[in-house]
Design a protein around this nucleic acid. Structure first.
Lengths: 206, 206
DNA sequence: GAAATAGTGGACGGTTGCGTTTCTAATCGG
DNA sequence: CCGATTAGAAACGCAACCGTCCACTATTTC
């Protein structure tokens, strides 16, 4: 396991470029968060270990326990720091264009190590706290973005008013996630386009 | 933890109803499978332990290792033995009726301990064997059932021919599963009905 | 009843990880 | 340079689990 120590200098003995050999504060925390998501993605939740995170981050357990009392605290902090913030509602002028922007942003998230980490959380027996972070950051707010887009389309006469309902707004993300979970492979751009064209547009315009 | 020893006699000392005190063969395997799904549902995949299964089933590790060489073999065997067989395509005479039958059967599966167990193994994409079992039993064949229903509806003039495509067939199960994973709670009948009425019917009839 | 099979319970040596502690080294700011 | 802080490495005692082994006992079959 190659520890994640990006940003270090060459560390050549006697070399002229003697950069720091230890990280402190935010830099170290960032490396720990990265290692945390990696551990979640590879080991899953149940086999997640602080030892593994420390090894991957190239740090000691003390540095981790100095900041977070438990595995769950560390995971929650890593997710909180790493999951993307609220996306802006796109305004491309067409419903299809807007839907593609949203679905592509979701695809990038799913296909990142964040996606694998989320999958580990979702597959774990119910834990309300961790699910709440994911729900808030990924599902609820993204549904709000989708809502803005569909409302605008209704106003433009591109969508039926009945489409403004939770389940319609959930359909695209549900299909993309379903694809990801059932194949274990990244969601392709072609798949995202097809979800928009074959499902979302007919459904919203129906 | 109360071991799963259903089916035993009263075991009264000196009682007149002296039934067997040990399970053998298929009966023992059935108890082990039940305990396996329970362990998956409660501990998840990563923290799944043979010790836990043995304790829950009220048997010894030797009896388990005598039959299955590893955790993965046991899990695969338990899922193979427990997942329901191929459902018949319903024929209620209406598209809505057929879709409700299918979605309710799926809901019963998701809400069972099988559902929790399936969810647990979603976390490990690298294990194609286990996922293949799930895909075959739950997704691919259920999609086939959905296909039969939609084809019949097309023939009756209730559905648009474009609806005969993989993504449309996946939409209902994807939404139900999405709901289950994101809430951590069973999927209600009202939710299943709404998925049919608000999503599947408009989408398939569009 | 005897023989064969296999279930039960416990022990075993080994591995992994936990959370904590200790110590030295590195970093930062004055 | 010095002092304060903390990062990194290693060690520690403990717990949980692994896969294997073994003695005893229950069950089934002939």
């Amino acid at each position: 396991m190659l520890p994640l120590r990006a940003g270090l200098g060459t560390g050549c003995p006697g070399g002229g470029d003697a950069l720091s050999t230890r990280r402190r504060g935010g830099v170290l925390e960032s490396a720990i968060f990265t290692a945390t998501l990696h551990e979640l993605a590879t080991a899953g939740y149940g086999a997640f270990s602080i030892e593994g995170v420390a090894a991957t981050a190239g740090t000691g357990k003390s540095a981790i326990y100095r900041r977070w009392a438990s595995k769950d605290e560390l995971i929650a902090a890593a997710l909180d720091a790493t999951l993307p913030s609220l996306p802006e509602a796109p305004d491309t002028g067409s419903l299809r264009g807007d839907l593609l922007v949203i679905m592509r942003a979701l695809g990038r998230l799913i296909n990142s190590e964040c996606g694998s980490a989320m999958r580990a959380i979702l597959s774990n027996p119910a834990d309300a706290e961790k699910l709440a972070v994911i729900k808030e950051r990924v599902m609820v707010r993204r549904r709000q973005t989708m809502l803005d887009v569909v409302r605008r389309a209704v106003a433009r006469g591109e969508a039926r008013p009945d489409a403004v309902c939770r389940r319609v707004l959930e359909t695209g993300p549900a299909l993309a996630m379903h694809r990801y979970l059932s194949t274990g492979r990244p969601v392709s751009d072609a798949e995202l386009i097809a979800i928009v064209d074959e499902i979302l547009l007919p459904l919203i315009r129906a």
